[in-house]
């Protein structure tokens, strides 16, 4: 099925085409949802809602610009709206716990897995996580993030800055813990 045919059939609510689209993109989109969610269950919820939105709004896709890009935008916006009520509350008790650490980090020799890093992202406080994902991974500009999240550009910048601090700190801890485990294992042998 080529893209044109797929789109035609999706617009006619053809369930074979809908299943085909799901099989082709669900893994990639689940990967995105995991980054915005706190738990895997929530990621599944967000993905389900996102696919429903794609199917229900398929007629609004103009055909200009990539179809995948259009769908990604829906998935991301949906993930953000899912937590919209949360990041409006700006009092996070753990802000003061952020250490003042360097932005750069040596990681090459430690093979940090997707799982490790995903957990670190998932644990970011509401707001920070969305801003970090949008800026660092999706490549959005702070101005666009401000529009999507209904915050000021400056808030976006400061949240990004803080998110980075938290991440660096957590990765440091992760690496230190791992290093120590290795040392202990060597010592016990």
């Amino acid at each position: 099925m080529n893209e044109k045919e797929l789109l035609e059939r999706l617009k006619k609510r053809d369930s074979t085409a809908q299943k085909y689209l799901f099989d082709k993109y669900s893994a990639l989109f689940y990967g995105i949802c995991l980054r915005y969610a706190y738990t895997n269950d929530e990621a599944e919820d967000i993905l389900q809602e996102g696919f429903l939105k794609i199917y229900m709004n398929i007629k609004k896709y103009s055909g200009s610009g990539s179809f995948e890009g259009w769908m990604k935008k829906i998935i991301i916006n949906n993930a953000i709206n899912y937590y919209h009520k949360d990041y409006k509350y700006r009092h996070y008790s753990d802000i003061k716990d952020i250490g003042d650490v360097a932005d750069d980090i040596e990681v090459d020799e430690y093979d940090l897995s997707h799982e490790d890093l995903l957990k670190v992202i998932q644990e970011l406080p509401p707001g920070y996580k969305q801003v970090f994902n949008l800026y660092a991974i999706e490549g959005y500009k702070h101005k666009d993030i401000a529009d999507i999240m209904e915050i000021s550009e400056n808030t976006s910048k400061s949240q990004y800055h803080r998110a980075k601090k938290i991440l660096v700190d957590k990765i440091h801890n992760l690496i230190a813990a791992r290093e120590n485990n290795i040392k202990n294992r060597l010592a016990n042998n």
Partner: peptide, 23 residues
């Protein structure tokens, strides 16, 4: 030295994970 943004971008830009089967 690796930049924190680069680390996450390369790891997650095209990260895929199979969703639960009954979705």
């Amino acid at each position: 030295e690796q930049n924190i943004e680069k680390l996450f971008k390369t790891k997650f830009e095209n990260y895929s994970q199979k969703p639960p089967s009954n979705l």
